[in-house]
Write a protein that binds this DNA or RNA. Structure first.
Lengths: 220, 220
DNA sequence: CTAATTATGGCAGCCCATGACAGATGACAA
DNA sequence: TTGTCATCTGTCATGGGCTGCCATAATTAG
């Protein structure tokens, strides 16, 4: 890897770190791109060569997490039922945050704190999750042997699990920022979801419909 | 109602209608506030006196819908189990769009089309739904006789149902814009969700935990 | 060392959004 | 009707987010 590339990578990380320090110190909205650029001694114009927008920087990690989750799901054994595969993938992801290098763990918690302090940003981060949901749905549908676009069931399954994770995060939002409670809350939400679902529903074993949607009935 | 107030109301509606016409013609992003203001022959500054932002205008109807849904839920009979109350509230809401005046129905469909064409906007609309979810959760928790902040179960139930509605909308996104298919898809998604959930789970009848979250276990 | 590639900085400009001030318009009472 | 008052509206100025353009400086390749 050449000098040029290393330099770029370093600048990128510097921008992220400087930005999040400012976000924590004075809030996301109150922090201007000029401030971030100045902190790294880079022209504001250059900032936008690294990140498409201030929001892009703030939510940059989401793409990394998307990779982690989708690959975690892909790595689950083929025999595992869809719901178990999904929840285990998410569990693995969360526990990865614990076993990570302390530096990465600290970054993760800082992200969470900034997001929890900015409802709009938090909402946007979940909005970006929609893309991840699509990918997860494709994989789940494959495992269920159904079609991810005409059959809403894999989509529903994915939505249920991601909802649980989201609720788990929400529960930990206010309370401090230590990782343990967050992990516990997500675990708990996933367990509750498992209790809530009818056993075997995720395996499409019964001859239940699911394709009714394509008929687009028009009552009344 | 005085002339002044009528005028304001008329200007407000004109702005919304002009905006959505432009949104459909050239896209949301490509439409500037100046264009909207010009179309209604109003100064751009005045635009911001009616709406806090361009996005506010585009998502204005969400607050109206929030009212409809929360009051629909509140109106459900007290004996009705929580899940049924929720789904019926949503069903009523959707069917209301059908029985509405043709003008309102047309507006509703136009909203959907613009949202479906703008992923960011769509995502933001669901983000705003978070507020609605909170209110629904409070009511559901009340009916379940549990606490909406310490017990994640009512939150999960609400999240499941709203997820289903969202998936129903998604299914209808591409296909044309006629109301029938949308209603059918949402109905279908709700039915599938009912199939997916373990009967009685929403009534917290069993002695299942639910409060485990507060212990914040930290495995590994 | 030279030449091509590429990152950077500065500038000008667009759009969104907000505060301040002044003028216009409707509301209301004498 | 008229005059006062509240409120709405337009204009101006400002700041922040974001982009295109061009010149310059740095890195890399030959």
């Amino acid at each position: 890897m050449g000098l040029r590339e290393r330099k770029k990578h370093r600048t990128r990380l510097s921008l992220i770190d400087a930005a999040f320090e400012l976000f924590q110190a004075q809030g996301y909205e109150a922090t201007t791109v000029d401030q971030i650029a100045a902190a790294v001694e880079v022209s504001p114009r250059t900032f936008f060569r690294y990140f498409g927008s201030k929001e892009d920087l703030a939510l940059d990690f989401t793409v990394e997490y998307e990779d982690l989750i989708t690959t975690a799901l892909a790595a689950r054994p083929e025999e595992e039922p869809p719901f178990a595969a999904l929840t285990h993938a998410f569990r693995e992801f969360i526990h990865l945050m614990e076993t990570n290098a302390a530096e990465d763990t600290e970054r993760f918690l800082r992200h969470r704190r900034v997001l929890d302090a900015n409802p709009v940003l938090l909402a946007t981060s979940f909005a970006r999750m929609a893309e991840t949901e699509k990918k997860l749905t494709v994989e789940i549908a494959r495992r269920q042997g159904t079609d991810p676009v005409t059959d809403p069931r894999p989509r529903l399954l994915v939505a249920f699990v991601t909802s649980a994770v989201r609720v788990g995060f929400e529960c930990s939002a206010g309370g401090a920022g230590h990782l343990g409670s967050l992990v516990g809350n997500v675990e708990n939400a996933l367990s509750l979801t498992e209790e809530a679902l009818r056993p075997g529903w995720d395996q499409l074993s019964l001859g239940s419909s699911g394709q009714v949607a394509t008929k687009a009935s028009s009552p009344r």
